[in-house]
């Protein structure tokens, strides 16, 4: 559906050139929800804008459903853009138009006759669940409702691809979840390919099939979301994964407990998929002569299965602890010793 080959984007500035996208090659399948995560300035905004020709690549090729987005111009480019919907962090609705008129705007651009336009707008309002708010102006809507208008507007011309530019970053957690559910629903019902950029791992975890991690214009890690969660390779990826698996206070708690129990080891256990459902701790206590204290735990649901992290404190004979850790590893569970006090 989308193919990027050796794409580079350089911005010329007085203070020197800035390489926003650095030689990226990437393939996104039809019907996939593909997430790109990175901190601000990583180049993800530039990358997503290359996909609908809002930015032109300095070198390399951007193919979206067979069209070379970097090369086409004028009418051809405008037509291609009508098949690529886009939603934005700050919604970018026209305040001078009502909900209905905002959703009708892309249809006006595409030259759809008025009667048909009104019919389509009604369908879309239903699809995004905005019945009853048709004649409201954007200023009268909540953030979540505004983004629903944005989504309806982006879907008006039946696009094949939907680009989401930090679409939930300006929303509160509950609204974020509602909008993400809507995106998954649309992806399933319409078979739409969704490319989203975000700095929130929560968004990736909840809806993405695959994820690419961006840093300094490069993709440093790419893979199935569950895989990336289980075995993050790069330090930046680990930090992002920690966003959802480790609450802020974990580190402090562990330090506190290490001071409190100077003996034994604190171990981080990582469960993925089925392993998350085994009675591992029960088995450990039965089979090994150890005291096990659960410090903190969390199970997260990804689009493709569950993923859990458990911090435990093991106290007992050192050799026994090592054997217990070996046992854990045999059970398809990752075990990492956080800190041992000798």
């Amino acid at each position: 559906m989308i193919t990027l080959s050796n794409v580079t984007k350089i911005y010329k500035a007085k203070s020197g050139n800035v390489t926003a996208v650095d030689n990226i090659s990437l393939q996104i399948q039809e019907g996939e929800i593909f997430g790109i995560i990175g901190y601000s300035g990583a180049g993800k905004s530039s990358l997503i804008r290359l996909l609908n020709g809002l930015e032109k690549p300095t070198s390399g090729k951007v193919l979206v459903s067979g069209r070379d987005m970097g090369a086409i111009k004028g009418k051809e480019l405008r037509q291609a853009r009508q098949e690529i919907g886009m939603i934005f962090q700050h919604f970018n609705l026209l305040w001078s138009r009502t909900v209905r008129e905002n959703i009708a705007f892309p249809l006006e651009i595409a030259g759809v006759p008025k009667e048909e336009r009104m019919k389509r707008v009604d369908e879309l309002i239903q699809l995004v669940g905005l019945e009853g708010r048709e004649n409201a102006y954007p200023s009268q809507l909540s953030g979540g409702q505004k983004q629903r208008v944005g989504i309806a507007r982006a879907l008006a011309n039946n696009p094949k691809v939907l680009l989401c530019d930090e679409a939930t970053s300006a929303l509160d957690p509950q609204t974020t979840d509602a909008i993400l559910d809507l995106l998954v629903d649309i992806n399933r019902r319409l078979g739409l390919t969704i490319v989203l950029i975000t700095h929130e791992m929560h968004v990736i975890r909840k809806i993405c099939d695959r994820v690419a991690v961006m840093e300094n214009g490069k993709i440093v890690e790419l893979g199935e979301v569950l895989q990336v969660f289980r075995k993050p390779q790069q330090p930046i990826t680990k930090r992002f994964v920690q966003q959802v698996t480790e609450p802020e206070e974990t580190k402090e708690t562990i330090e506190h407990l290490l001071n409190k129990y100077p003996n034994g080891k604190v171990v981080q256990l990582t469960f993925v998929g089925e392993a998350a459902e085994q009675p591992l701790i029960t088995n450990l206590i039965r089979q090994f002569d150890l005291n096990i204290n659960i410090l903190q735990g969390k199970i997260s649901q990804t689009h493709h299965g569950s993923y859990g992290v458990l911090f435990v404190h093991m106290d007992g004979d050192e050799a026994e602890i090592d054997r217990a850790i070996d046992y854990i590893r045999q059970q398809q569970v990752e075990a990492e010793v956080m800190a041992g006090v000798d």
Partner: peptide, 14 residues
């Protein structure tokens, strides 16, 4: 808002 102009461009507006 520049974003609104960008949104119109992204929709394929002349």
């Amino acid at each position: 808002d520049k974003g609104v102009i960008e949104a119109a461009k992204a929709m394929g507006a002349k």
